[in-house]
Amino acid sequence: MAPHPYTRYVALGDSFTEGVGDVDATRPNGVRGWADRVAEVLASQSEGFGYANLAIRGRKLLPVIAEQLEPALALEPDLVTLYAGANDILRPSVDLDTLATAYDDAVARLAATGARVLVWTAFDPGGSATYRLLRGRFALYSEFVRETADRHGATVVDFWRLREYRDWRYWDADRMHMGPAGHQRMAIEVLDTLGVAHDLAPLPLLDPEPVSRREQVREQVTWVREFAAPWVHRRLTGRSSGDGLAPRYPALTRPAVG
């Protein structure tokens, strides 16, 4: 493969792009994530490379656009990634047509700069007892992502078809965010989609231990108490897990290499 052409990479979005679930106490907001992993590979192949990550956990699509689009454009990127909308889909009600219009406008503005723009379909929740009731919403979201990408020449990372993510070992204990193995797998997918040479390899997955029915019930109760209930409480009180947080890398920064 030829050397990649990217020198200014800006990542926009929510917890997916911020890196939640991939814990690293040495980094801003205590996380690493697939975008950092991608940026590290890109930086290793370009001396003048810079990376900004504007994503903040808990953000819905319209706030992502309102807070992150103009700062991203001001950085004059030649590579942009945008993932947002999942936090809207998980709400009790959502106007997908309004979201689709706003999303299309944002991608149009990013693409008009001449930057390479990567966007994501949703993950297919058909294998999840918790999220599969929303599968229709995720499918509609994915379709408007594909239509927008076709209209504006963006590149799609097709999360919907990455079936290995039905294995919970790719996910964090909260069942909402990818764990380290999931972020590593996504970094590989992004680099492959960009056609960038790399030596990233999937992280090993631990073989699941046999779990009795009683243990399964205990795990479910623990998950509801520690993760699901706090998430619902934040929704009811109008709070977000990202309240008080700033973007991890608001200005172009050279990632650590090696």
Rank of each mutant, 00 (worst) to 15 (best):
A2S: 15
R8K: 02
G13K: 06
E18Q: 10
G19H: 07
G21N: 05
G30A: 13
V31K: 03
V38S: 11
A39T: 05
F49D: 13
A55R: 10
R57A: 05
G58L: 11
L61D: 02
V64Y: 01
I65N: 00
I65K: 01
L75K: 12
T81I: 09
R91I: 07
P92L: 08
D97C: 05
T98L: 15
L99D: 02
A100I: 07
T101L: 13
T101Q: 15
D105Y: 12
V107Q: 03
R109I: 09
A111V: 09
T113V: 05
L118T: 06
W120T: 15
W120E: 05
T121R: 04
G127H: 08
S128M: 04
A129M: 14
Y131T: 07
R132Y: 11
L134Q: 06
R137G: 04
F138T: 03
Y141V: 15
F144W: 08
R146D: 00
D150Y: 13
V156T: 06
L162D: 03
W168D: 14
R169K: 08
R169H: 08
A173V: 10
M176W: 10
M178F: 11
R185C: 04
R185W: 02
L194Q: 01
P204S: 10
L205A: 01
E209G: 05
E209K: 09
V217S: 04
R218F: 11
V221L: 14
T222F: 08
R225M: 08
E226L: 15
F227I: 00
F227K: 02
A229C: 10
A229P: 06
R234D: 11
S241V: 15
G244V: 01
L252S: 15
R254G: 05
A256D: 14
V257S: 03
G258M: 08
